[in-house]
């Protein structure tokens, strides 16, 4: 651990010089925006001769060590920054990898992270046994996220109610996502168990997000998390996942500085003020915010343009 310190000091020094909040005096290291993680990969997949799950476990340990050093947690500094750290597992086919999923949730809980596991409703209905494994008494899963986005209508209301009741009985926080009609029609929002424990519902409109950007002030800070793609790439936000220009590292990189990005100043500017779209007024269709789609389009154009010397 001590061998890392000179390297971190160098990184921290560079970060502090570029990251002042408004007219405030104290530096705010950019990695403070990257306290939470979204995992998009399939835990069974293979990366560099090992499973995604194993590579991910090792990277999360490095990430945790990096954060502890960054913020001085081990010296009693900034303990409040250790709160509200979450890991959302969004990958496909979780129910085929329940052992790996439970081991990861157990690992991250020991580090002080809350974990959320997303399960598509169709998969949970098709494999109730595997779903139950995630709710076992020793399970460290904090929140179950039931995703109905692929459903136009509720087709198995009684089975769905059993799944949700099982989550409630297991003491897991309940999170839902899908259209408002799906969840109102399910009748679950009137259920005593669901109301007694509480729930959150991420509403999907089912249409393109056409919300305008009416202000130049649209910081990326609240959109920033470490997104880990299916191939193990690290990205600062959902809008840049899969792009070469948006990648800030890889889970197999052994460097204790878990981010390999060189231009922190540009990321810092996005965090504080929002991305540049260079006046772009059009954007491709999609569910991401308009500003993200315009930003990605702008960066693709910038990347494709001949480099000036």
């Amino acid at each position: 651990m001590k061998n890392w310190i000179p390297h971190f000091s160098h990184v921290l020094g560079a970060l502090k010089s570029t990251t002042k909040r408004g007219t405030g005096r104290n530096p705010a290291p950019l990695p403070k925006y990257f306290r939470s993680i979204v995992v998009l990969g399939n835990l069974h997949a293979s990366i560099d001769g090992d499973t995604y799950a194993n590579q991910l476990s090792r990277w999360i340990e490095r990430f945790n060590a990096f954060s502890r050093l960054q913020f001085g947690f081990d010296h009693g500094q900034n303990p409040l920054l250790a709160a509200s750290r979450t890991i959302l597992f969004m990958g496909d086919d979780v129910l085929s990898a329940t052992n790996e999923q439970l081991a990861l949730c157990s690992l991250v809980r020991r580090m002080g992270f809350a974990s959320t596991v997303r399960i598509p409703v169709a998969e949970a209905l098709a494999r109730p046994g595997a779903f139950s494994e995630l709710l076992a008494p020793e399970s460290a899963v904090s929140t179950m996220l039931l995703d109905s986005r692929t459903h136009a209508a509720v087709d198995s209301p009684s089975e769905l109610k059993m799944l949700v009741s099982e989550c409630v009985r297991a003491g897991k926080a309940l999170s839902l996502t899908g259209t408002i009609s799906y969840w109102l029609d399910s009748g679950l929002l009137a259920d005593q168990g669901v109301n007694g424990d509480g729930f959150s519902l991420g509403v999907i409109s089912g249409q393109n997000d056409t919300r305008p950007t009416v202000s130049t002030f649209d910081p990326c800070a609240s959109r920033f998390q470490v997104f880990i793609s299916e191939s193990g790439g690290l990205f600062p936000c959902q809008g840049l996942v899969g792009t070469s220009f948006g990648q800030i590292g890889h889970i197999t990189a052994q460097n204790p500085n878990i981010f390999s990005v060189t231009d922190w100043a540009e990321l810092d500017g996005w965090a504080k003020h929002g991305p540049s779209t260079d006046g772009a007024t059009t954007h491709p269709p999609g569910v991401l915010p308009v500003i993200c789609r315009r930003h990605r389009k702008y960066l693709e154009r910038r990347e494709a343009a001949p480099q000036r010397v």
């Binding site: 259209t179 109102l184 929002l189 424990d197 509480g198 959150s200 991420g202």
Partner: peptide, 24 residues
């Protein structure tokens, strides 16, 4: 319940909401 409250708001308007959180 949450359902009782939500039923007083139009579905079109609710579909423009980003997040609904209910607690006891």
């Amino acid at each position: 319940s949450a359902q009782e409250a939500l039923s007083q708001v139009g579905r079109d308007a609710l579909s423009r909401c980003d997040l609904i959180m209910s607690g006891p």
